[in-house]
Design a binder for these strands. Sequence first.
DNA 1: CGACACCTTGATAGTGCTCAATCGGCGTGG
DNA 2: CCACGCCGATTGAGCACTATCAAGGTGTCG
Lengths: 235, 235
Amino acid sequence: MQRLEINLPGPCASCPLRSFAVYCDDREGCESDIEAMRNDRRIYRAGKIFYREGEASDEVYQLFNGWAYRFKLLPDGRRQILSFLLPGDTIGFELLNQDRLPYSVRALTPVSVCVFNKDTLAGHILQQQTLIKRAASFWSASSAASDQRILDLGRRSAYERIARFIQDLVQRLRARGFEHGDSMPFAPSQMHIADALGLTPVHVGRILRQMRAGGILTLKHGLLTIHDPELLRQI
Amino acid sequence: MQRLEINLPGPCASCPLRSFAVYCDDREGCESDIEAMRNDRRIYRAGKIFYREGEASDEVYQLFNGWAYRFKLLPDGRRQILSFLLPGDTIGFELLNQDRLPYSVRALTPVSVCVFNKDTLAGHILQQQTLIKRAASFWSASSAASDQRILDLGRRSAYERIARFIQDLVQRLRARGFEHGDSMPFAPSQMHIADALGLTPVHVGRILRQMRAGGILTLKHGLLTIHDPELLRQI
DNA sequence: CGACACCTTGATAGTGCTCAATCGGCGTGG
DNA sequence: CCACGCCGATTGAGCACTATCAAGGTGTCG
Protein backbone atom coordinates (compact mmCIF):
# COMPACT_ATOMS: atom_id res chain seq x y z
CA MET A 1 0.00 0.00 0.00
CA GLN A 2 1.03 3.52 -0.62
CA ARG A 3 2.16 5.72 2.16
CA LEU A 4 -0.52 8.21 2.77
CA GLU A 5 -0.08 11.32 4.72
CA ILE A 6 -2.13 14.35 5.35
CA ASN A 7 -0.74 17.61 6.49
CA LEU A 8 -2.59 19.03 9.35
CA PRO A 9 -1.77 22.61 9.83
CA GLY A 10 2.02 22.54 9.79
CA PRO A 11 3.41 23.49 6.40
CA CYS A 12 5.62 21.06 4.56
CA ALA A 13 8.59 23.27 3.93
CA SER A 14 10.05 21.18 1.14
CA CYS A 15 6.88 21.18 -0.92
CA PRO A 16 6.63 23.73 -3.70
CA LEU A 17 3.06 24.26 -2.68
CA ARG A 18 3.32 24.46 1.05
CA SER A 19 1.09 22.68 3.51
CA PHE A 20 -0.37 20.27 1.02
CA ALA A 21 -1.56 16.74 1.42
CA VAL A 22 0.85 14.22 0.16
CA TYR A 23 0.04 10.76 -0.96
CA CYS A 24 3.19 8.91 -1.57
CA ASP A 25 5.27 5.76 -1.43
CA ASP A 26 8.24 7.34 0.25
CA ARG A 27 8.80 10.33 2.43
CA GLU A 28 11.78 11.77 0.70
CA GLY A 29 10.86 13.97 -2.18
CA CYS A 30 7.74 15.99 -1.72
CA GLU A 31 7.51 16.84 -5.38
CA SER A 32 7.08 13.26 -6.43
CA ASP A 33 4.56 12.92 -3.65
CA ILE A 34 2.44 15.62 -5.14
CA GLU A 35 2.76 13.96 -8.49
CA ALA A 36 1.55 10.71 -7.00
CA MET A 37 -1.28 12.47 -5.29
CA ARG A 38 -2.67 13.58 -8.62
CA ASN A 39 -4.08 10.11 -9.06
CA ASP A 40 -6.62 10.94 -6.46
CA ARG A 41 -7.46 14.41 -7.48
CA ARG A 42 -10.86 15.67 -8.50
CA ILE A 43 -12.10 18.93 -9.89
CA TYR A 44 -15.43 20.49 -8.98
CA ARG A 45 -17.32 23.57 -9.96
CA ALA A 46 -18.15 26.43 -7.62
CA GLY A 47 -21.12 25.50 -5.48
CA LYS A 48 -20.18 21.82 -5.17
CA ILE A 49 -21.46 20.49 -1.88
CA PHE A 50 -18.96 18.23 -0.15
CA TYR A 51 -21.04 17.49 2.91
CA ARG A 52 -24.51 18.24 4.08
CA GLU A 53 -24.86 18.69 7.81
CA GLY A 54 -25.78 15.40 9.46
CA GLU A 55 -25.24 13.19 6.44
CA ALA A 56 -22.72 10.37 6.49
CA SER A 57 -19.69 10.21 4.23
CA ASP A 58 -16.63 8.04 3.75
CA GLU A 59 -14.47 10.66 2.15
CA VAL A 60 -12.13 13.17 3.62
CA TYR A 61 -10.71 15.84 1.32
CA GLN A 62 -7.88 18.20 1.20
CA LEU A 63 -8.25 21.35 -0.79
CA PHE A 64 -5.67 21.63 -3.50
CA ASN A 65 -6.90 24.68 -5.30
CA GLY A 66 -9.68 27.20 -4.78
CA TRP A 67 -11.84 28.28 -1.85
CA ALA A 68 -14.49 26.44 0.17
CA TYR A 69 -16.41 27.16 3.34
CA ARG A 70 -17.98 25.35 6.27
CA PHE A 71 -21.44 26.56 7.23
CA LYS A 72 -24.64 25.84 9.07
CA LEU A 73 -28.20 26.52 7.99
CA LEU A 74 -31.21 27.41 10.13
CA PRO A 75 -34.62 26.00 9.18
CA ASP A 76 -35.78 29.46 8.09
CA GLY A 77 -32.84 29.88 5.73
CA ARG A 78 -30.49 31.95 7.82
CA ARG A 79 -26.92 30.87 7.18
CA GLN A 80 -23.81 31.08 9.30
CA ILE A 81 -20.44 30.51 7.71
CA LEU A 82 -18.13 28.93 10.26
CA SER A 83 -14.85 29.25 8.42
CA PHE A 84 -13.27 29.52 5.02
CA LEU A 85 -11.00 26.82 3.67
CA LEU A 86 -7.96 27.61 1.58
CA PRO A 87 -5.62 25.44 -0.48
CA GLY A 88 -3.91 23.00 1.86
CA ASP A 89 -6.76 22.89 4.36
CA THR A 90 -8.35 19.60 5.31
CA ILE A 91 -12.07 19.16 4.78
CA GLY A 92 -14.11 16.87 6.99
CA PHE A 93 -11.35 15.71 9.27
CA GLU A 94 -13.85 15.04 12.07
CA LEU A 95 -15.09 12.09 10.04
CA LEU A 96 -12.12 10.17 11.38
CA ASN A 97 -13.91 9.81 14.72
CA GLN A 98 -17.54 10.17 13.84
CA ASP A 99 -19.90 9.25 11.10
CA ARG A 100 -21.59 12.58 10.68
CA LEU A 101 -20.37 16.11 10.42
CA PRO A 102 -22.05 18.88 12.40
CA TYR A 103 -21.77 21.28 9.48
CA SER A 104 -22.00 21.49 5.70
CA VAL A 105 -19.17 22.28 3.30
CA ARG A 106 -19.40 23.93 -0.07
CA ALA A 107 -17.02 25.12 -2.75
CA LEU A 108 -16.92 28.88 -3.09
CA THR A 109 -14.94 28.84 -6.33
CA PRO A 110 -14.03 26.07 -8.72
CA VAL A 111 -11.80 23.74 -6.71
CA SER A 112 -9.59 20.74 -7.00
CA VAL A 113 -9.24 18.39 -4.08
CA CYS A 114 -7.40 15.26 -3.04
CA VAL A 115 -9.63 12.51 -1.78
CA PHE A 116 -8.93 10.12 1.07
CA ASN A 117 -10.91 7.25 2.42
CA LYS A 118 -11.67 8.07 6.01
CA ASP A 119 -11.00 4.57 7.36
CA THR A 120 -7.72 4.18 5.53
CA LEU A 121 -6.67 7.57 6.74
CA ALA A 122 -7.79 6.90 10.30
CA GLY A 123 -5.91 3.63 10.45
CA HIS A 124 -2.83 5.25 9.09
CA ILE A 125 -2.87 8.19 11.46
CA LEU A 126 -3.53 6.12 14.55
CA GLN A 127 -0.41 4.06 13.92
CA GLN A 128 2.05 6.90 14.09
CA GLN A 129 2.75 9.01 17.14
CA THR A 130 3.89 11.86 14.96
CA LEU A 131 0.66 11.94 13.04
CA ILE A 132 -1.39 11.64 16.17
CA LYS A 133 0.35 14.65 17.61
CA ARG A 134 -0.18 16.59 14.44
CA ALA A 135 -3.83 15.68 14.51
CA ALA A 136 -4.03 16.89 18.08
CA SER A 137 -2.42 20.18 17.11
CA PHE A 138 -4.88 20.47 14.31
CA TRP A 139 -7.82 20.05 16.69
CA SER A 140 -6.39 22.61 19.07
CA ALA A 141 -5.79 25.10 16.31
CA SER A 142 -9.25 24.82 14.82
CA SER A 143 -10.78 24.99 18.25
CA ALA A 144 -8.80 28.13 18.97
CA ALA A 145 -9.97 29.64 15.69
CA SER A 146 -13.58 28.94 16.60
CA ASP A 147 -13.14 30.53 19.99
CA GLN A 148 -11.59 33.54 18.38
CA ARG A 149 -14.60 33.88 16.14
CA ILE A 150 -16.89 33.62 19.13
CA LEU A 151 -15.07 36.56 20.67
CA ASP A 152 -15.41 38.51 17.44
CA LEU A 153 -19.11 37.85 17.12
CA GLY A 154 -19.90 38.41 20.76
CA ARG A 155 -17.87 41.44 21.64
CA ARG A 156 -16.66 43.31 18.59
CA SER A 157 -18.37 45.90 16.42
CA ALA A 158 -19.05 45.26 12.75
CA TYR A 159 -16.10 47.45 11.84
CA GLU A 160 -13.74 45.54 14.08
CA ARG A 161 -15.05 42.19 12.91
CA ILE A 162 -14.46 42.96 9.27
CA ALA A 163 -11.00 44.32 9.94
CA ARG A 164 -10.04 41.21 11.87
CA PHE A 165 -11.65 38.90 9.38
CA ILE A 166 -9.66 40.37 6.54
CA GLN A 167 -6.45 40.38 8.51
CA ASP A 168 -6.90 36.76 9.35
CA LEU A 169 -7.42 35.78 5.73
CA VAL A 170 -4.56 37.96 4.60
CA GLN A 171 -2.26 36.11 6.94
CA ARG A 172 -3.41 32.74 5.70
CA LEU A 173 -3.19 33.79 2.06
CA ARG A 174 0.25 35.21 2.60
CA ALA A 175 1.43 31.99 4.25
CA ARG A 176 0.41 30.18 1.10
CA GLY A 177 2.16 32.57 -1.19
CA PHE A 178 -0.90 34.15 -2.77
CA GLU A 179 0.26 37.68 -2.21
CA HIS A 180 1.40 39.77 -5.16
CA GLY A 181 2.67 43.13 -4.00
CA ASP A 182 0.02 44.33 -1.59
CA SER A 183 -2.80 42.57 -3.42
CA MET A 184 -4.15 39.06 -3.31
CA PRO A 185 -7.11 37.05 -4.63
CA PHE A 186 -10.14 37.26 -2.40
CA ALA A 187 -13.10 35.10 -3.37
CA PRO A 188 -15.76 35.77 -0.70
CA SER A 189 -18.47 38.18 -1.76
CA GLN A 190 -19.99 40.72 0.61
CA MET A 191 -22.76 38.22 1.20
CA HIS A 192 -20.27 35.59 2.33
CA ILE A 193 -18.50 38.02 4.60
CA ALA A 194 -21.85 38.99 6.07
CA ASP A 195 -22.79 35.36 6.70
CA ALA A 196 -19.44 34.70 8.31
CA LEU A 197 -19.62 37.72 10.63
CA GLY A 198 -23.29 37.77 11.56
CA LEU A 199 -24.06 40.89 9.53
CA THR A 200 -26.10 41.81 6.47
CA PRO A 201 -24.51 42.21 3.04
CA VAL A 202 -25.71 45.80 2.90
CA HIS A 203 -23.95 46.71 6.09
CA VAL A 204 -20.77 44.94 5.05
CA GLY A 205 -20.83 47.00 1.88
CA ARG A 206 -21.12 50.22 3.84
CA ILE A 207 -18.21 49.38 6.07
CA LEU A 208 -16.07 48.31 3.17
CA ARG A 209 -16.80 51.67 1.59
CA GLN A 210 -15.74 53.37 4.83
CA MET A 211 -12.48 51.46 4.78
CA ARG A 212 -11.90 52.32 1.16
CA ALA A 213 -12.59 55.98 1.91
CA GLY A 214 -10.20 55.81 4.85
CA GLY A 215 -7.43 54.58 2.56
CA ILE A 216 -7.18 51.28 4.37
CA LEU A 217 -8.06 48.72 1.74
CA THR A 218 -9.88 48.06 -1.50
CA LEU A 219 -11.91 44.96 -2.22
CA LYS A 220 -13.17 44.67 -5.76
CA HIS A 221 -13.77 41.95 -8.29
CA GLY A 222 -12.22 39.27 -6.13
CA LEU A 223 -9.06 41.24 -5.53
CA LEU A 224 -8.10 42.57 -2.13
CA THR A 225 -5.55 45.36 -1.87
CA ILE A 226 -4.19 46.56 1.45
CA HIS A 227 -3.24 50.21 1.27
CA ASP A 228 -2.43 50.77 4.92
CA PRO A 229 -1.58 47.63 6.89
CA GLU A 230 -0.77 49.65 9.99
CA LEU A 231 -4.20 51.28 10.15
CA LEU A 232 -5.79 47.89 9.65
CA ARG A 233 -3.78 46.38 12.46
CA GLN A 234 -4.74 49.13 14.88
CA ILE A 235 -8.45 48.39 14.73
CA MET B 1 2.69 3.91 38.88
CA GLN B 2 -0.98 4.28 39.28
CA ARG B 3 -3.28 3.84 36.37
CA LEU B 4 -4.51 7.22 35.45
CA GLU B 5 -7.45 7.87 33.28
CA ILE B 6 -9.42 10.87 32.35
CA ASN B 7 -12.90 10.75 31.08
CA LEU B 8 -13.38 12.80 28.05
CA PRO B 9 -16.98 13.33 27.38
CA GLY B 10 -18.34 9.81 27.66
CA PRO B 11 -19.89 9.12 31.03
CA CYS B 12 -18.55 6.27 33.14
CA ALA B 13 -21.76 4.43 33.80
CA SER B 14 -20.52 2.47 36.76
CA CYS B 15 -19.37 5.53 38.65
CA PRO B 16 -21.74 6.94 41.19
CA LEU B 17 -20.77 10.36 39.98
CA ARG B 18 -20.90 9.94 36.24
CA SER B 19 -18.31 11.15 33.82
CA PHE B 20 -15.64 11.81 36.39
CA ALA B 21 -11.92 11.56 36.19
CA VAL B 22 -10.59 8.42 37.72
CA TYR B 23 -7.13 7.93 39.04
CA CYS B 24 -6.67 4.34 39.92
CA ASP B 25 -4.57 1.20 40.08
CA ASP B 26 -7.09 -1.05 38.45
CA ARG B 27 -9.99 -0.62 36.13
CA GLU B 28 -12.52 -2.69 37.94
CA GLY B 29 -14.26 -0.77 40.64
CA CYS B 30 -14.92 2.83 39.86
CA GLU B 31 -15.78 3.64 43.43
CA SER B 32 -12.33 2.82 44.70
CA ASP B 33 -10.96 4.84 41.81
CA ILE B 34 -12.76 7.87 42.98
CA GLU B 35 -11.52 7.25 46.46
CA ALA B 36 -7.97 7.07 45.16
CA MET B 37 -8.49 10.24 43.19
CA ARG B 38 -9.19 12.16 46.36
CA ASN B 39 -5.46 12.25 47.01
CA ASP B 40 -5.15 14.71 44.22
CA ARG B 41 -8.10 16.85 44.90
CA ARG B 42 -8.03 20.54 45.67
CA ILE B 43 -10.64 23.02 46.73
CA TYR B 44 -10.77 26.62 45.57
CA ARG B 45 -12.96 29.60 46.20
CA ALA B 46 -15.17 31.26 43.61
CA GLY B 47 -13.08 33.48 41.39
CA LYS B 48 -10.02 31.23 41.42
CA ILE B 49 -8.12 31.67 38.19
CA PHE B 50 -6.90 28.39 36.76
CA TYR B 51 -5.28 29.82 33.68
CA ARG B 52 -4.60 33.22 32.29
CA GLU B 53 -4.66 33.42 28.52
CA GLY B 54 -1.19 32.92 27.08
CA GLU B 55 0.49 31.82 30.28
CA ALA B 56 2.13 28.42 30.56
CA SER B 57 1.02 25.74 32.99
CA ASP B 58 1.85 22.13 33.77
CA GLU B 59 -1.46 21.24 35.29
CA VAL B 60 -4.60 19.89 33.72
CA TYR B 61 -7.72 19.75 35.87
CA GLN B 62 -10.98 18.00 35.96
CA LEU B 63 -13.85 19.69 37.69
CA PHE B 64 -15.22 17.60 40.51
CA ASN B 65 -17.66 20.02 42.00
CA GLY B 66 -18.92 23.50 41.16
CA TRP B 67 -18.94 25.68 38.04
CA ALA B 68 -16.16 27.30 36.05
CA TYR B 69 -15.91 29.11 32.73
CA ARG B 70 -13.51 29.67 29.87
CA PHE B 71 -13.26 33.25 28.64
CA LYS B 72 -11.28 35.81 26.71
CA LEU B 73 -10.64 39.43 27.56
CA LEU B 74 -10.21 42.37 25.21
CA PRO B 75 -7.66 45.09 26.10
CA ASP B 76 -10.48 47.52 26.86
CA GLY B 77 -12.11 45.15 29.34
CA ARG B 78 -14.80 43.57 27.18
CA ARG B 79 -15.18 39.93 28.11
CA GLN B 80 -16.44 36.96 26.12
CA ILE B 81 -17.27 33.76 27.93
CA LEU B 82 -16.54 30.85 25.61
CA SER B 83 -18.18 28.06 27.60
CA PHE B 84 -19.20 26.96 31.03
CA LEU B 85 -17.64 23.95 32.69
CA LEU B 86 -19.63 21.57 34.87
CA PRO B 87 -18.60 18.76 37.20
CA GLY B 88 -16.86 16.10 35.14
CA ASP B 89 -15.56 18.51 32.53
CA THR B 90 -11.87 18.67 31.75
CA ILE B 91 -10.08 22.01 32.14
CA GLY B 92 -7.10 22.86 30.00
CA PHE B 93 -6.95 19.70 27.94
CA GLU B 94 -5.23 21.56 25.09
CA LEU B 95 -2.14 21.75 27.28
CA LEU B 96 -1.42 18.18 26.24
CA ASN B 97 -0.21 19.46 22.85
CA GLN B 98 0.76 23.01 23.53
CA ASP B 99 2.36 25.06 26.23
CA ARG B 100 -0.10 27.91 26.28
CA LEU B 101 -3.83 28.10 26.32
CA PRO B 102 -5.66 30.55 24.05
CA TYR B 103 -8.16 31.42 26.79
CA SER B 104 -8.46 31.98 30.53
CA VAL B 105 -10.38 29.84 33.00
CA ARG B 106 -11.99 30.93 36.22
CA ALA B 107 -14.12 29.35 38.92
CA LEU B 108 -17.66 30.69 38.96
CA THR B 109 -18.55 29.09 42.30
CA PRO B 110 -16.45 27.39 44.94
CA VAL B 111 -15.03 24.32 43.23
CA SER B 112 -13.12 21.16 43.86
CA VAL B 113 -10.91 19.75 41.15
CA CYS B 114 -8.67 16.79 40.44
CA VAL B 115 -5.21 17.75 39.29
CA PHE B 116 -3.12 15.98 36.67
CA ASN B 117 0.35 16.65 35.45
CA LYS B 118 0.08 17.39 31.77
CA ASP B 119 3.11 15.35 30.75
CA THR B 120 2.13 12.31 32.76
CA LEU B 121 -1.33 12.52 31.32
CA ALA B 122 -0.10 13.03 27.78
CA GLY B 123 2.24 10.05 28.00
CA HIS B 124 -0.50 7.91 29.38
CA ILE B 125 -3.07 8.87 26.79
CA LEU B 126 -0.75 8.46 23.84
CA GLN B 127 -0.08 4.86 24.79
CA GLN B 128 -3.62 3.64 24.53
CA GLN B 129 -5.67 3.58 21.38
CA THR B 130 -8.86 3.74 23.37
CA LEU B 131 -7.80 6.91 25.11
CA ILE B 132 -6.60 8.46 21.91
CA LYS B 133 -9.96 7.86 20.34
CA ARG B 134 -11.71 9.31 23.33
CA ALA B 135 -9.48 12.34 23.14
CA ALA B 136 -10.34 12.72 19.48
CA SER B 137 -14.04 12.54 20.27
CA PHE B 138 -13.51 15.13 22.92
CA TRP B 139 -11.92 17.52 20.42
CA SER B 140 -14.69 16.96 17.93
CA ALA B 141 -17.34 17.55 20.52
CA SER B 142 -15.87 20.75 21.85
CA SER B 143 -15.27 21.98 18.35
CA ALA B 144 -18.89 21.26 17.49
CA ALA B 145 -20.00 23.16 20.58
CA SER B 146 -17.94 26.16 19.55
CA ASP B 147 -19.41 26.09 16.06
CA GLN B 148 -22.87 25.90 17.52
CA ARG B 149 -22.15 28.98 19.59
CA ILE B 150 -20.90 30.78 16.49
CA LEU B 151 -24.22 30.08 14.83
CA ASP B 152 -26.06 31.36 17.89
CA LEU B 153 -24.08 34.58 18.08
CA GLY B 154 -24.10 35.21 14.36
CA ARG B 155 -27.62 34.42 13.36
CA ARG B 156 -29.98 34.23 16.30
CA SER B 157 -31.82 36.94 18.21
CA ALA B 158 -31.17 37.61 21.87
CA TYR B 159 -34.36 35.77 22.75
CA GLU B 160 -33.36 32.69 20.78
CA ARG B 161 -29.83 32.74 22.13
CA ILE B 162 -30.95 32.76 25.72
CA ALA B 163 -33.48 30.00 25.14
CA ARG B 164 -30.85 27.81 23.49
CA PHE B 165 -28.25 28.64 26.06
CA ILE B 166 -30.51 27.55 28.88
CA GLN B 167 -31.63 24.43 27.08
CA ASP B 168 -28.06 23.43 26.50
CA LEU B 169 -27.15 23.82 30.14
CA VAL B 170 -30.31 22.07 31.25
CA GLN B 171 -29.34 19.08 29.17
CA ARG B 172 -25.86 18.98 30.61
CA LEU B 173 -27.08 19.44 34.16
CA ARG B 174 -29.67 16.73 33.68
CA ALA B 175 -27.06 14.32 32.33
CA ARG B 176 -25.15 14.82 35.55
CA GLY B 177 -28.17 14.27 37.76
CA PHE B 178 -28.54 17.81 39.06
CA GLU B 179 -32.22 18.02 38.28
CA HIS B 180 -34.74 17.97 41.13
CA GLY B 181 -38.25 17.94 39.78
CA ASP B 182 -38.24 20.67 37.15
CA SER B 183 -35.65 22.75 38.96
CA MET B 184 -31.88 22.70 39.05
CA PRO B 185 -28.98 24.77 40.37
CA PHE B 186 -27.91 27.50 37.98
CA ALA B 187 -24.85 29.49 38.97
CA PRO B 188 -24.33 32.01 36.14
CA SER B 189 -25.61 35.49 36.88
CA GLN B 190 -27.25 37.66 34.24
CA MET B 191 -23.88 39.26 33.73
CA HIS B 192 -22.31 35.90 32.92
CA ILE B 193 -25.10 35.00 30.55
CA ALA B 194 -24.65 38.34 28.85
CA ASP B 195 -20.93 37.82 28.45
CA ALA B 196 -21.50 34.36 27.06
CA LEU B 197 -24.08 35.47 24.51
CA GLY B 198 -22.71 38.82 23.41
CA LEU B 199 -25.43 40.84 25.14
CA THR B 200 -25.68 43.30 28.01
CA PRO B 201 -26.79 42.23 31.48
CA VAL B 202 -29.69 44.68 31.33
CA HIS B 203 -31.05 43.16 28.16
CA VAL B 204 -30.63 39.64 29.48
CA GLY B 205 -32.67 40.68 32.49
CA ARG B 206 -35.47 42.00 30.30
CA ILE B 207 -35.65 38.85 28.25
CA LEU B 208 -35.60 36.66 31.33
CA ARG B 209 -38.52 38.71 32.62
CA GLN B 210 -40.33 38.13 29.32
CA MET B 211 -39.79 34.41 29.65
CA ARG B 212 -40.99 34.44 33.22
CA ALA B 213 -44.09 36.39 32.16
CA GLY B 214 -44.66 33.88 29.36
CA GLY B 215 -44.70 31.05 31.87
CA ILE B 216 -41.64 29.45 30.33
CA LEU B 217 -39.07 29.51 33.10
CA THR B 218 -37.94 31.19 36.29
CA LEU B 219 -34.34 31.98 37.14
CA LYS B 220 -33.80 33.30 40.62
CA HIS B 221 -31.17 33.03 43.30
CA GLY B 222 -29.20 30.43 41.45
CA LEU B 223 -32.18 28.20 40.86
CA LEU B 224 -33.58 27.55 37.42
CA THR B 225 -37.11 26.22 37.07
CA ILE B 226 -38.55 25.15 33.75
CA HIS B 227 -42.30 25.65 33.68
CA ASP B 228 -42.93 24.84 30.05
CA PRO B 229 -40.24 22.73 28.37
CA GLU B 230 -42.26 22.52 25.17
CA LEU B 231 -42.47 26.29 24.72
CA LEU B 232 -38.76 26.54 25.39
CA ARG B 233 -37.97 23.91 22.80
CA GLN B 234 -40.02 25.65 20.14
CA ILE B 235 -37.98 28.83 20.20
C1' DC C 1 -26.16 47.57 60.19
C1' DG C 2 -23.38 48.67 56.25
C1' DA C 3 -21.13 47.16 52.12
C1' DC C 4 -21.55 44.97 48.14
C1' DA C 5 -23.17 42.31 44.36
C1' DC C 6 -26.90 41.53 41.62
C1' DC C 7 -31.29 42.49 39.67
C1' DT C 8 -34.96 45.74 38.08
C1' DT C 9 -36.92 49.54 35.73
C1' DG C 10 -37.08 53.75 32.89
C1' DA C 11 -35.55 56.89 29.33
C1' DT C 12 -32.72 57.63 25.43
C1' DA C 13 -29.41 56.63 21.84
C1' DG C 14 -27.11 54.04 18.36
C1' DT C 15 -25.69 50.20 15.70
C1' DG C 16 -27.00 47.44 12.31
C1' DC C 17 -31.36 45.67 9.86
C1' DT C 18 -35.11 45.90 6.39
C1' DC C 19 -36.99 47.19 2.25
C1' DA C 20 -36.49 49.00 -2.20
C1' DA C 21 -34.46 50.91 -6.25
C1' DT C 22 -30.52 51.39 -9.27
C1' DC C 23 -26.33 50.13 -11.35
C1' DG C 24 -22.62 47.38 -13.15
C1' DG C 25 -20.27 43.09 -14.66
C1' DC C 26 -20.43 38.75 -16.66
C1' DG C 27 -22.00 34.63 -18.93
C1' DT C 28 -25.41 32.77 -22.09
C1' DG C 29 -27.76 32.43 -26.21
C1' DG C 30 -29.57 34.28 -30.32
C1' DC D 1 -21.75 41.09 -31.66
C1' DC D 2 -25.48 42.43 -29.03
C1' DA D 3 -29.58 41.52 -25.95
C1' DC D 4 -30.96 39.48 -22.10
C1' DG D 5 -30.86 37.86 -17.45
C1' DC D 6 -28.72 37.15 -13.23
C1' DC D 7 -25.98 38.00 -9.43
C1' DG D 8 -23.56 41.12 -6.63
C1' DA D 9 -22.54 45.94 -5.19
C1' DT D 10 -24.30 50.48 -4.05
C1' DT D 11 -27.27 53.89 -2.07
C1' DG D 12 -31.18 55.87 0.55
C1' DA D 13 -34.83 56.10 4.02
C1' DG D 14 -36.82 54.41 8.03
C1' DC D 15 -37.03 51.30 11.76
C1' DA D 16 -36.00 47.67 15.32
C1' DC D 17 -33.27 45.51 18.37
C1' DT D 18 -30.06 46.05 21.69
C1' DA D 19 -26.87 49.21 24.14
C1' DT D 20 -26.09 52.94 27.34
C1' DC D 21 -26.82 55.62 31.30
C1' DA D 22 -28.88 56.23 35.63
C1' DA D 23 -31.50 55.36 39.72
C1' DG D 24 -33.50 52.46 43.02
C1' DG D 25 -34.44 47.83 44.97
C1' DT D 26 -33.34 43.37 47.13
C1' DG D 27 -30.64 39.85 49.07
C1' DT D 28 -26.38 38.20 51.36
C1' DC D 29 -22.51 38.33 54.20
C1' DG D 30 -19.36 40.02 57.46
